[in-house]
Simulated assay, not measured.
Amino acid sequence: MSTLLQPTLAGLPSPSTEAFLRFENVSKVYPTPTGPYTVLDGIDMAVNQGEFMCVIGHSGCGKSTLLNMVSGFSTPSSGQVVLHGNAITKPGPDRMVVFQGYALLPWFSAYDNVYLAIDSVKPDLPAVEKKEITREHLAMVGLTEAADKKINQLSGGMKQRVAIARALAIRPEVLILDEPFGALDAITKEELQEELLTIWNTQKCTVLMITHDIDEALFLADRLVMMTNGPAAKIGEIMEINFPRPRNREEIMEDPIYYDMRNQALDFLYSRFAHDDTE
């Protein structure tokens, strides 16, 4: 088997290495009428600065809960999530989220949605600079001509472009993507994947992305985190994806290693950790 395919068990770096982002023995337990329900149990993982990491697993494995603890929307029941050596306890502009459902203000234009985000986080920035940053990021996602259109006048792909532009305009250190392309058609999805990689190669923020699409993960990510089933989900394996960057989709898909890696991920999800729909 190629060295590219050797699964790496999740773990923290050595004490001499300070990771950019760390999950330190993180668990999440919710109270229920029938007793405590453990969603995540004992998550240990380090994320490097500038890394593009995808998380995959069946529904109910705690993917969104895991990333909500990075955004600060949720806090661990035990353990901690640490960024730059400081425990994350609340949301902040250094961590921006793009949702599958866009979460845009429909009565505003594309331009106004991006400008409002910049104005909220950096109110003291001169208006001319806010306008410049807004235009720059709309151009980055190909929406210069649609800047003045209201959100309800835009297609699903265009709405997601606005959401990505809004998140990146804040210049976050961590970009969190919760299945951002899951509701889009195949052609639009591939276009946005390409645009996302182009932007990431330029800005080099750290990206954590939830996906159900193995091919998407293999094209985008440096590493693929594969979760075991819930309850009490853990990190099962972390796959290193060492295709050189910038990536070309056609070249990658012609590489036999691509299909070896794809089969390994499929085996993890549908053989070793097949989802039991009767549960």
Rank of each mutant, 00 (worst) to 15 (best):
M1I: 11
M1Y: 03
T8L: 13
A10V: 10
S16K: 14
L21F: 10
S27R: 12
S27K: 13
K28E: 02
P31Q: 11
Y37L: 15
T38N: 05
A46G: 13
N48K: 14
G50F: 00
G57L: 02
S64V: 08
N68D: 13
F73E: 08
V81D: 07
P93Q: 09
Y111N: 06
L116A: 13
I118H: 04
S120Q: 13
S120V: 05
V121S: 04
K122N: 15
P123D: 08
L125Y: 09
L125G: 09
V128D: 13
V128Y: 05
V128H: 13
R135G: 02
E136Q: 15
H137C: 07
K149R: 15
N152Q: 07
L154C: 04
S155G: 04
G157R: 04
G157L: 06
Q160I: 06
R161L: 05
V162W: 00
I164C: 08
A165K: 10
P172Y: 01
L175A: 08
E179I: 11
L192Y: 01
E194K: 10
E195A: 05
E195T: 15
T198Y: 02
N201V: 00
C205E: 14
L208D: 05
L208Q: 08
M209L: 14
I210H: 05
D213S: 14
M227N: 10
A232H: 05
E237M: 13
E237K: 14
I238H: 02
E240K: 11
I241F: 11
N242P: 02
F243P: 08
R249I: 05
E251L: 15
M261D: 03
Q264L: 14
Q264K: 03
F268W: 12
F273D: 08
T278S: 15
